[in-house]
Design a binder for these strands. Sequence first.
DNA 1: TCCAATTCCAAGTACTTTACTCGGTATTTC
DNA 2: GAAATACCGAGTAAAGTACTTGGAATTGGA
Lengths: 149, 149
Amino acid sequence: MKLSTKGRYGVKSMLDLALHGGEGPVPLKSIAERQDISENYLEQLFATLRKAGHLKSIRGAQGGYILAHDPKNITIGSILRSLEGSLAPVECVVEDDPIKCSKSDRCVTKIVWKKIRDKVNEAVDSVTLDDLIEEYKKSNTDDAYIYYI
Amino acid sequence: MKLSTKGRYGVKSMLDLALHGGEGPVPLKSIAERQDISENYLEQLFATLRKAGHLKSIRGAQGGYILAHDPKNITIGSILRSLEGSLAPVECVVEDDPIKCSKSDRCVTKIVWKKIRDKVNEAVDSVTLDDLIEEYKKSNTDDAYIYYI
DNA sequence: TCCAATTCCAAGTACTTTACTCGGTATTTC
DNA sequence: GAAATACCGAGTAAAGTACTTGGAATTGGA
């Protein structure tokens, strides 16, 4: 039941971008360095996030990435699902067109898998990027200018 | 964020055992056949469940496995955690001695990981084996004697 | 007393997934 | 025109998953 690095890196990087953006695009390289993630690998994750509509990119020198929406409107859940796919614990309870097993009609264990799925979604959808930004600022009141994670 | 087959097979098999037990030990082979799981593989899972105190075994001919406790006192969570380990989505928020990263003190993403962890535990600990048995019986009122899953 | 049925145990292995790397092209600014 | 960036597709090493294999130990019943 572990998240892959995709989800973890994605959330970290989106938060990094939110903290460092504002005055223009942030180059992937700087995010990768701060977050200690392979640049080439993060590139792939950002491609996914861009296609999912979370990021906008600006090519060429002085280019980089910017958030496509206000952090208040970006839930952690939407980031995670973009990168990880459904957060359902078992294929048979994936939200759209689940892969059913032969005994799906009689299977009562699905009750549990659905509960897990719903609770996980509840958890990740209740937190926005902005919530994390606020938490970050709160926990760094002494040296409020050090906006790295 | 998927469960492995260990967790899924474990819950299915414990339920199967609960439905077929009662008049004595149930041989692993019959559970494996009904649930369409490799017998040798299930053996390994049952070894874990036995060591975790969920099962008792009786060796030799006419032997098999029986539940160590009343289904009312066995939560799905305890089965899953025995087989899968902590259900935390990230190592750094595992319940006992988590593996912390270097930035753990400042890391705000942990807020989300902890929320997921707690919600998942809440979901799986709110359902007992007996709940699934009851659900199963309810959904099979017409042919109530067919107690397989 | 032996055989069949069972649990118990430790290694080995094929397959799949993850987490990357590599090499290049396209675009933009200075 | 050179440097800095994003974009793209393919390849790959390591780890994890889901088993298999080959046995030893125990027990009940013929």
